[in-house]
Amino acid sequence: MWSMTLKRLMFAIPSLIGVVIITFLLTRALPGDPAAYFAGPAATQEAISQVRAKLGLDKSLLVQFTRYVGDLARGDLGNSLTTGQPVVTEIRNRLPASAELTLLGLIVSVLIAVPLGILAATKPDSLIDHACRLVTTAGVSLPVFFTGLILVYVFYYLLGWAPAPLGRLDIFFSTPPQITGFYLIDSLLTGKFDLFRAALSQLLLPALTLAIFSLAPIARMTRASMLAVLASDFVRTARASGLTPFTVIVTYAFRNAMLPVITTLGMVFSFLLGANVLVEKVFAWPGIGSYAVEALLASDFAPVQGFVLTMAVLYVALNLIIDILYGLIDPRVRIEA
């Protein structure tokens, strides 16, 4: 088990190196003189050359790259031009908001998509199968920001069930003490149930938006892989042995059908992390996505670079976790390793 995990870790290293190289190259591709760029629009010629020396832009590309890697190793992502704050602190403060939203979206999505896919596979051509097909076809065509806006219109404006789409918490509430950074968990840990309710009601619509977006690939994969497993010999044997349909489907078939679904989660995360940016914009969510968008529009490059790097490292880590999880579920992978 440990050797397999170690091997997976080794596989992630080339990806990480590639990510660091690309984010480095992105800064060097900035149009015009990067020194003038980082010095700001009001900088004098002297200030620009000072910045150039400080950033090491007068050195060779290789030296610059080593400096960049050194800065990264010390956890230095540079400072934001507009706020003057270190990018790392800002990202660290905002990351829990994004993580809470994305994870809840994924959980809701899995809770809907997996049962839907299983039911569709066990009853082909039934009403639920057609519903599943509709969801998977429509799901991939819906622009995520559009879904979010429709949900806001229906649930906030028409029905009045949801609070205004303005961030993580209504202004009448004070934020819970920082323990994990996840408002849902922190409010429960400190026993503030009204706070939990308020945070959940703000979170529900954006999470649902992300869930609708990621529903399609998960449901499609569950259905396809359940269909394949249900047609296999061991399921036939299990049925012939007189096991109840529930045991056959859940214990025998589903455990085997889960493997391709878990592989799909890697792709789903790629979409979710991207869609997260758009959803944060729609719901004025104070996460790292909206931080990057604000910086992007202000031509403030350091936060964008830090954001791209953070997201990529997160994505590589998530893929690593998926790989290890895969090994835990499927003993065959462990033997191969």
Binding site: S15, L16, G18, V19, I22, F269, S270, F271, L272, L273, G274, A275, V277, L278, A292, L296, V304, F307, V308, M311, A312, Y315, V316
Partner: peptide, 9 residues
Amino acid sequence: AFPLFVLAM
């Protein structure tokens, strides 16, 4: 290795 939309940004 990047979330695609993030890389595009």
